[in-house]
Design a protein around this nucleic acid. Structure first.
Length: 273
DNA sequence: ATAGGCCTGACG
DNA sequence: CGTCAGGCCTAT
Protein backbone atom coordinates (compact mmCIF):
# COMPACT_ATOMS: atom_id res chain seq x y z
CA UNK A 1 0.00 0.00 0.00
CA UNK A 2 2.13 2.83 -1.25
CA UNK A 3 1.75 6.00 0.81
CA UNK A 4 3.97 9.07 0.71
CA UNK A 5 7.25 7.38 1.80
CA UNK A 6 6.79 4.51 -0.64
CA UNK A 7 5.81 6.75 -3.55
CA UNK A 8 8.71 9.10 -2.82
CA UNK A 9 11.10 6.12 -2.75
CA UNK A 10 9.82 5.13 -6.18
CA UNK A 11 10.09 8.70 -7.45
CA UNK A 12 13.72 8.90 -6.37
CA UNK A 13 14.49 5.70 -8.23
CA UNK A 14 12.57 6.68 -11.36
CA UNK A 15 13.84 10.22 -11.79
CA UNK A 16 17.46 9.45 -12.78
CA UNK A 17 16.34 6.53 -14.93
CA UNK A 18 13.61 8.35 -16.82
CA UNK A 19 14.99 11.87 -17.07
CA UNK A 20 15.57 12.56 -20.75
CA UNK A 21 14.09 9.27 -21.97
CA UNK A 22 11.58 9.36 -24.79
CA UNK A 23 8.39 7.34 -24.78
CA UNK A 24 8.17 5.55 -28.12
CA UNK A 25 4.88 3.79 -27.52
CA UNK A 26 2.40 2.69 -24.89
CA UNK A 27 0.45 -0.55 -24.46
CA UNK A 28 -2.81 -0.28 -22.54
CA UNK A 29 -4.05 -3.71 -21.51
CA UNK A 30 -6.62 -2.50 -18.97
CA UNK A 31 -8.26 0.62 -20.45
CA UNK A 32 -10.28 1.50 -17.36
CA UNK A 33 -7.05 2.46 -15.56
CA UNK A 34 -6.71 5.38 -17.99
CA UNK A 35 -8.92 8.08 -16.46
CA UNK A 36 -8.17 10.88 -18.89
CA UNK A 37 -8.27 11.37 -21.82
CA UNK A 38 -9.57 8.33 -23.70
CA UNK A 39 -7.08 5.44 -23.82
CA UNK A 40 -6.61 6.06 -27.53
CA UNK A 41 -5.83 9.78 -27.09
CA UNK A 42 -3.64 8.92 -24.13
CA UNK A 43 -1.53 6.55 -26.22
CA UNK A 44 -1.37 8.90 -29.19
CA UNK A 45 -0.38 11.92 -27.12
CA UNK A 46 2.29 10.03 -25.18
CA UNK A 47 4.04 8.59 -28.21
CA UNK A 48 7.26 10.49 -28.96
CA UNK A 49 7.25 12.61 -25.80
CA UNK A 50 10.39 13.12 -23.78
CA UNK A 51 10.30 12.85 -19.99
CA UNK A 52 11.80 15.93 -18.35
CA UNK A 53 11.60 14.87 -14.70
CA UNK A 54 9.69 12.73 -12.24
CA UNK A 55 7.88 14.55 -9.45
CA UNK A 56 5.37 13.65 -6.78
CA UNK A 57 2.33 15.18 -5.11
CA UNK A 58 0.86 13.19 -2.27
CA UNK A 59 0.63 9.63 -3.54
CA UNK A 60 0.67 10.69 -7.20
CA UNK A 61 3.72 10.28 -9.41
CA UNK A 62 4.00 13.12 -11.91
CA UNK A 63 6.10 12.55 -15.02
CA UNK A 64 6.60 15.97 -16.52
CA UNK A 65 6.81 15.74 -20.29
CA UNK A 66 8.02 18.08 -22.98
CA UNK A 67 5.17 20.13 -24.39
CA UNK A 68 3.63 20.95 -21.04
CA UNK A 69 1.90 17.67 -20.28
CA UNK A 70 2.06 15.57 -17.17
CA UNK A 71 1.79 11.80 -17.15
CA UNK A 72 0.14 10.99 -13.82
CA UNK A 73 0.40 7.57 -12.19
CA UNK A 74 -1.31 6.59 -8.95
CA UNK A 75 -0.39 3.16 -7.62
CA UNK A 76 -3.59 2.57 -5.69
CA UNK A 77 -3.28 -0.27 -3.23
CA UNK A 78 -1.07 -2.70 -5.05
CA UNK A 79 0.49 -0.92 -8.01
CA UNK A 80 4.20 -1.09 -8.81
CA UNK A 81 6.46 0.15 -11.59
CA UNK A 82 9.23 -2.06 -12.92
CA UNK A 83 11.78 -1.82 -15.68
CA UNK A 84 11.97 -4.69 -18.12
CA UNK A 85 13.68 -5.63 -21.34
CA UNK A 86 11.71 -6.26 -24.53
CA UNK A 87 10.76 -9.87 -25.05
CA UNK A 88 11.35 -10.65 -21.40
CA UNK A 89 8.79 -12.31 -19.19
CA UNK A 90 6.23 -9.82 -17.88
CA UNK A 91 4.77 -10.21 -14.42
CA UNK A 92 1.14 -11.19 -14.02
CA UNK A 93 -1.16 -8.14 -13.87
CA UNK A 94 0.99 -5.99 -16.15
CA UNK A 95 -1.63 -3.49 -17.34
CA UNK A 96 0.46 -0.73 -18.92
CA UNK A 97 3.74 -0.86 -20.80
CA UNK A 98 5.68 2.28 -21.63
CA UNK A 99 8.29 1.69 -24.33
CA UNK A 100 11.35 3.89 -24.02
CA UNK A 101 13.76 4.97 -26.75
CA UNK A 102 16.70 3.29 -25.05
CA UNK A 103 14.97 -0.06 -25.56
CA UNK A 104 13.76 -0.54 -22.01
CA UNK A 105 10.16 -0.93 -21.00
CA UNK A 106 8.53 0.54 -17.92
CA UNK A 107 5.79 -1.80 -16.66
CA UNK A 108 2.83 -0.82 -14.56
CA UNK A 109 1.80 -3.90 -12.56
CA UNK A 110 -1.27 -3.82 -10.32
CA UNK A 111 -3.08 -6.99 -9.13
CA UNK A 112 -5.98 -5.16 -7.51
CA UNK A 113 -6.28 -2.49 -10.17
CA UNK A 114 -7.08 0.32 -7.74
CA UNK A 115 -4.47 2.48 -9.42
CA UNK A 116 -5.02 4.99 -12.20
CA UNK A 117 -3.21 6.96 -14.83
CA UNK A 118 -3.97 10.11 -16.78
CA UNK A 119 -2.35 12.56 -19.14
CA UNK A 120 -2.98 16.12 -18.05
CA UNK A 121 -2.02 19.59 -19.17
CA UNK A 122 0.15 21.52 -16.76
CA UNK A 123 -2.13 24.00 -15.08
CA UNK A 124 -5.29 21.94 -15.50
CA UNK A 125 -5.44 19.09 -13.07
CA UNK A 126 -9.24 19.13 -12.97
CA UNK A 127 -9.67 15.81 -14.80
CA UNK A 128 -8.27 14.19 -11.66
CA UNK A 129 -10.15 15.84 -8.78
CA UNK A 130 -8.16 13.88 -6.21
CA UNK A 131 -4.94 15.44 -7.49
CA UNK A 132 -6.47 18.84 -8.11
CA UNK A 133 -7.73 19.17 -4.54
CA UNK A 134 -4.74 17.76 -2.69
CA UNK A 135 -3.80 19.25 0.66
CA UNK A 136 -0.29 20.47 1.59
CA UNK A 137 2.81 18.26 1.50
CA UNK A 138 3.59 17.29 5.09
CA UNK A 139 7.36 17.01 4.59
CA UNK A 140 7.82 20.40 2.97
CA UNK A 141 9.44 23.17 4.95
CA UNK A 142 6.34 25.32 4.73
CA UNK A 143 4.27 22.71 6.51
CA UNK A 144 4.25 24.22 9.99
CA UNK A 145 2.12 23.31 13.00
CA UNK A 146 -0.07 26.24 11.97
CA UNK A 147 -0.52 24.69 8.53
CA UNK A 148 -1.54 21.43 10.14
CA UNK A 149 -4.00 23.21 12.40
CA UNK A 150 -5.51 24.91 9.34
CA UNK A 151 -5.81 21.54 7.60
CA UNK A 152 -7.39 19.89 10.61
CA UNK A 153 -10.35 22.19 11.16
CA UNK A 154 -13.81 20.81 11.65
CA UNK A 155 -15.23 18.18 13.91
CA UNK A 156 -14.57 14.80 12.30
CA UNK A 157 -12.40 12.20 13.96
CA UNK A 158 -8.68 12.86 13.72
CA UNK A 159 -7.97 9.50 12.10
CA UNK A 160 -10.50 10.17 9.34
CA UNK A 161 -9.04 13.65 8.83
CA UNK A 162 -5.49 12.32 8.42
CA UNK A 163 -6.72 9.96 5.70
CA UNK A 164 -8.42 12.81 3.85
CA UNK A 165 -6.02 13.72 1.05
CA UNK A 166 -7.62 17.15 0.60
CA UNK A 167 -6.51 18.05 4.14
CA UNK A 168 -2.96 16.69 4.09
CA UNK A 169 -1.41 14.88 1.12
CA UNK A 170 0.13 11.43 1.17
CA UNK A 171 -0.87 9.91 4.49
CA UNK A 172 -2.59 6.52 4.38
CA UNK A 173 -3.69 4.01 6.95
CA UNK A 174 -0.26 2.94 8.16
CA UNK A 175 1.22 6.38 8.78
CA UNK A 176 -1.99 7.80 10.20
CA UNK A 177 -1.97 5.16 12.94
CA UNK A 178 1.77 5.40 13.51
CA UNK A 179 1.70 9.20 13.76
CA UNK A 180 -1.23 9.20 16.19
CA UNK A 181 0.52 6.70 18.43
CA UNK A 182 3.71 8.75 18.49
CA UNK A 183 1.67 11.84 19.29
CA UNK A 184 -0.28 10.07 22.03
CA UNK A 185 -3.60 10.98 20.43
CA UNK A 186 -6.55 8.60 20.33
CA UNK A 187 -7.76 8.02 16.74
CA UNK A 188 -11.37 8.74 17.69
CA UNK A 189 -10.66 12.20 19.09
CA UNK A 190 -12.50 14.99 17.32
CA UNK A 191 -10.53 17.72 15.62
CA UNK A 192 -12.18 20.56 17.53
CA UNK A 193 -11.10 19.11 20.86
CA UNK A 194 -7.37 18.89 20.03
CA UNK A 195 -5.26 21.26 22.12
CA UNK A 196 -2.60 23.41 20.50
CA UNK A 197 0.04 21.33 22.19
CA UNK A 198 -1.42 18.16 20.76
CA UNK A 199 -1.47 19.71 17.30
CA UNK A 200 2.25 20.46 17.63
CA UNK A 201 2.90 16.97 18.87
CA UNK A 202 0.97 15.49 15.95
CA UNK A 203 2.83 17.73 13.52
CA UNK A 204 6.16 16.50 14.84
CA UNK A 205 4.99 12.88 14.89
CA UNK A 206 3.78 13.00 11.30
CA UNK A 207 7.01 14.47 10.01
CA UNK A 208 9.13 12.09 12.04
CA UNK A 209 7.32 8.94 11.02
CA UNK A 210 7.16 9.93 7.35
CA UNK A 211 10.82 10.87 7.12
CA UNK A 212 12.01 7.82 9.06
CA UNK A 213 9.92 5.60 6.80
CA UNK A 214 11.32 7.34 3.75
CA UNK A 215 14.88 6.83 4.96
CA UNK A 216 14.12 3.11 5.29
CA UNK A 217 12.62 2.76 1.82
CA UNK A 218 9.04 2.65 3.07
CA UNK A 219 6.95 -0.13 4.60
CA UNK A 220 6.25 -3.47 2.93
CA UNK A 221 3.24 -4.99 4.63
CA UNK A 222 1.66 -6.98 1.83
CA UNK A 223 2.86 -6.32 -1.62
CA UNK A 224 4.76 -3.05 -1.77
CA UNK A 225 8.00 -3.24 -3.73
CA UNK A 226 10.09 -0.48 -5.25
CA UNK A 227 11.12 -0.27 -8.92
CA UNK A 228 13.85 -2.84 -8.29
CA UNK A 229 11.38 -5.28 -6.79
CA UNK A 230 12.82 -4.70 -3.32
CA UNK A 231 10.84 -4.31 -0.12
CA UNK A 232 11.14 -1.43 2.31
CA UNK A 233 12.12 -2.11 5.90
CA UNK A 234 10.07 0.33 7.95
CA UNK A 235 7.41 -2.32 8.73
CA UNK A 236 9.85 -3.61 11.35
CA UNK A 237 9.52 -0.27 13.14
CA UNK A 238 5.73 -0.08 13.20
CA UNK A 239 4.56 0.49 16.76
CA UNK A 240 0.84 -0.19 16.29
CA UNK A 241 -0.06 -0.99 12.71
CA UNK A 242 -1.27 -4.61 12.48
CA UNK A 243 -0.11 -5.30 16.04
CA UNK A 244 -3.53 -5.93 17.63
CA UNK A 245 -3.18 -8.02 20.80
CA UNK A 246 0.55 -7.39 21.08
CA UNK A 247 2.06 -5.24 23.84
CA UNK A 248 2.67 -1.53 23.29
CA UNK A 249 6.43 -0.95 23.10
CA UNK A 250 6.05 2.13 25.26
CA UNK A 251 3.74 0.99 28.06
CA UNK A 252 3.07 -2.72 27.62
CA UNK A 253 -0.69 -2.36 27.23
CA UNK A 254 -2.15 -4.54 24.48
CA UNK A 255 -2.68 -2.81 21.15
CA UNK A 256 -6.33 -2.65 20.12
CA UNK A 257 -7.98 -2.59 16.77
CA UNK A 258 -11.15 -0.69 15.93
CA UNK A 259 -12.79 0.45 12.73
CA UNK A 260 -12.72 4.16 11.94
CA UNK A 261 -14.12 5.55 8.70
CA UNK A 262 -14.19 2.01 7.36
CA UNK A 263 -10.52 1.34 8.01
CA UNK A 264 -8.79 -0.95 10.44
CA UNK A 265 -7.31 1.34 13.09
CA UNK A 266 -4.67 0.29 15.60
CA UNK A 267 -3.87 2.17 18.80
CA UNK A 268 -2.70 1.83 22.36
CA UNK A 269 -5.59 2.55 24.75
CA UNK A 270 -3.19 3.67 27.48
CA UNK A 271 -0.74 5.86 25.54
CA UNK A 272 -3.35 7.42 23.26
CA UNK A 273 -6.00 9.62 24.86
C1' DA B 1 -20.38 11.60 7.78
C1' DT B 2 -20.90 7.01 6.51
C1' DA B 3 -21.59 2.90 3.49
C1' DG B 4 -20.84 0.53 -0.76
C1' DG B 5 -18.19 -0.67 -4.79
C1' DC B 6 -14.19 -1.45 -7.37
C1' DC B 7 -10.60 -5.77 -7.40
C1' DT B 8 -7.34 -9.85 -6.35
C1' DG B 9 -4.84 -12.64 -3.19
C1' DA B 10 -4.24 -14.51 1.32
C1' DC B 11 -6.20 -16.85 4.90
C1' DG B 12 -9.28 -19.78 8.01
C1' DC C 1 -16.35 -21.22 0.64
C1' DG C 2 -16.55 -16.29 3.28
C1' DT C 3 -13.79 -12.55 5.09
C1' DC C 4 -10.42 -9.25 5.10
C1' DA C 5 -7.10 -5.92 3.24
C1' DG C 6 -7.91 -0.52 1.86
C1' DG C 7 -7.29 4.29 -1.64
C1' DC C 8 -10.53 6.82 -3.50
C1' DC C 9 -14.87 7.75 -5.75
C1' DT C 10 -19.89 7.82 -5.67
C1' DA C 11 -24.25 7.63 -3.57
C1' DT C 12 -27.03 8.10 0.45
Amino acid sequence: MPELPEVETIRRQLDPELRGARITGVEVHLPRLVKYPSPLSYRRALRGKRILEVGRRGKYLLLRLEGGRILVVHLGMSGSLRFASPGGERPRHTHLVFHLDDGRELLYVDPRTFGETALLREGDLSPLPGLDRLGPEPLEAGFTPGELARALRGRCRVKAALLDQSRVAGIGNIYADEALHRAGIHPLRRLDELEGEEMESLHRAMREVLSEALSRGGSSVNDYVDTRGEKGSFQASHRVYRRAGEPCFRCGELIRKVRVAGRGTYFCPRCQR
